[in-house]
């Protein structure tokens, strides 16, 4: 359903959902245990016991239901409901005890969820630093590094290496049509890094001198492929041709649990053609008042490229370096299978 190209938003939503589910699971396992205990202790009064039995069974059923249901956006509400149901159906000391138990556990769940989300926020904030910390392990003395366009992660990664007194050179492919590479080059020069700006089409000519390609991406797909700024596939192929390692730096928030062949995933964003050409200069090519009236000129400006996992050597994320084939493992850690379709 997510038609937007901003996959990161969906990723974070799924992560939060996953956190809630995890907490819920913890609570439920406790809950079920607790209820059994209560039932056991109230064995004397049979009538009440039956009643309790029914109530507890209902509660368990409700929680089971909630576990099985694929979309649980309101898990917290469900907990409340089930406890309410318990409240109504039960009367007596032990029930009151269980009620207070549940109230406190519910509060605890909420607290845990909030805590976990806060940790997630911190993680996202710190991801650039965490990635940058690993820079010295990857960038060696007197290396030549190639990058495409502008990525904050790449910039911090390089600057961390520079701070650690590594001396290296950077070749920046300008990243047409938005030319973000120019911005990156400026910033690198400010840091005192020797930089070379080349056109995207000159990448193949430069690649033989390059020791490593380090790039930032838009999203990392579940199969280990990436969606990256347009031109990246060409860079990747050039790197493969000269056996230059292609290193992708990306925070875990860019990890997307979807596969690129999924029709629900919008792989590309067709941007405005005016980034490519000047409307005024081409206005006479688009005069539909003459000839057949059919537009003969079509200007296509895709924002992204898809780079398959075979072309990528290494992912550097805030939790360390990973092989493309390992990405699906991370996905399993971070996301619930139920949340894949939002």
């Amino acid at each position: 359903m997510d038609g937007t190209a901003e996959l990161a938003v969906g990723n974070i939503v799924r992560r939060v959902l996953h956190i809630i589910r995890e907490e819920e699971l913890l609570l439920l396992t406790k809950d079920v245990g607790g209820l059994k205990l209560i039932v056991g202790s109230d064995d004397e009064d049979t009538a009440e016991g039956d009643y309790n039995h029914v109530a507890s069974a209902a509660a368990v059923a409700a929680s089971r239901n909630s576990l099985l249901r694929p979309s649980l956006h309101t898990l917290l509400e469900n907990i409340q409901n089930s406890t309410l149901a318990c409240q109504n159906s039960s009367g007596g000391d032990s029930e009151e005890k269980s009620k207070s138990d549940k109230n406190s556990s519910r509060r605890k769940v909420k607290h845990n969820v909030i805590e976990a989300v806060n940790i997630l926020i911190e993680d996202i904030d710190a991801c650039h630093e965490l990635i940058a910390e690993q820079a010295v392990e990857h960038i060696h003395q007197n290396e030549v590094i190639l990058t495409l366009g502008h990525s904050k992660t790449v910039l911090e990664f390089l600057s961390a290496a520079k701070e650690k007194k590594r001396s290296f050179r950077v070749v920046v492919a300008e990243g047409a049509p938005r030319y973000q590479g120019h911005v990156l080059a400026k910033e690198l020069v400010k840091m005192g890094v020797q930089s070379t700006v080349v056109t995207d089409s000159a990448v193949f000519a430069m690649i033989s001198r390059v020791n490593m390609v380090i790039v930032g991406v838009h999203a990392v797909m579940a199969n280990g492929g990436v969606i990256a700024p347009v031109g990246m596939r060409m860079v990747a192929l050039a790197a493969r041709n000269y056996a230059v390692p292609l290193v992708v730096v990306a925070g875990t928030h860019k990890l997307c649990p979807l596969y690129p062949h999924n029709p629900e995933v919008l792989l590309n964003d067709m941007r405005c053609p005016s980034e490519l050409v000047d409307f005024g200069e081409f206005s006479n090519c688009m005069d539909f008042g003459i000839d057949s009236g059919a537009p003969l000129l079509h200007i296509v400006n895709p924002a992204f490229d898809y780079v398959p996992p075979e072309l990528i050597s290494l992912f550097i994320t805030d939790i360390g370096g990973h092989n493309p084939s390992y990405i699906h493992r991370l996905i399993a850690d971070y996301y619930s299978a139920d949340d894949l379709v939002l």
Partner: peptide, 25 residues
């Protein structure tokens, strides 16, 4: 320069602007 602006004055511009929209200007 890089942005788009047009007014639909007549059927001709209705056609042209529609095509501009489809072509993502």
């Amino acid at each position: 320069y890089s942005s788009y602006a047009a007014r639909i004055d007549n059927f001709r511009s209705y056609d042209t602007v529609s095509k501009d929209i489809i072509q993502r200007w």
